[in-house]
Amino acid sequence: MIRLQNIEKVYRTSAIETLALNSISLDIAKGEFLSVMGPSGCGKSTLLNIMGLLDAPTKGDIKIDEQRTDHFSDKQLAQFRNRKLGFVFQSYHLINDLKVLDNVELPLLYRTSSGNERKKLASAALEKVGLSNRVKHFPSQLSGGQKQRVAIARAIVGRPEIILADEPTGNLDSAMGSEIMDILLQLNATDNTTIIMVTHDEYMASKTHRLVRLFDGVLVQ
């Protein structure tokens, strides 16, 4: 599903160069649930952003679904992200001024779909994460766990094949974290969604199919 070959990422600022990723090669199969662990600053988020086409590698190739992505225009990238990828962030990144339902509809806005259809799909996604009774709420009226469930609903509403989750349980207590983890496991099991999750929690990681560890931009293991 995702194939990384010799990925290198260098951050250049005026003062220093940081080698955030060093020659990373990784194959992720369709339907796989992969967790990524490593100490802070080792390059986990950078790796995820590159897989999510939010950032370009300095060197190396990425293939998603057998497609090379390095020649994509901004518009093609946007479309590709819209169809294939769903993101879940540690700090939820919900749009505070939009109601829950509108937040979930967001990815569908950049497709050609009618308002009714959008509502239907968004409601269905919210039902999946068990938040049907909060559609009219604003994000500020939700708990952290509820916010993250809304974020997951938003990530899955467009039925992407891949979900990239950067510390989805990082801001939550263990009970709420487990709830979120259960939702992700469920998604992976029933819809065969490929999931790549960055985590600091060994227990969460142990529930996934495979675990890779990063250390200073290098894959160990």
Binding site: A78, R81, N82, H93, L106, G158
Partner: peptide, 14 residues
């Protein structure tokens, strides 16, 4: 918000 919109499929032009 703009970052989120881009991540979920809004192109710069949009």
């Amino acid at each position: 918000e703009i970052g989120v919109r881009k991540a979920f499929g809004a192109s710069s032009r949009t």
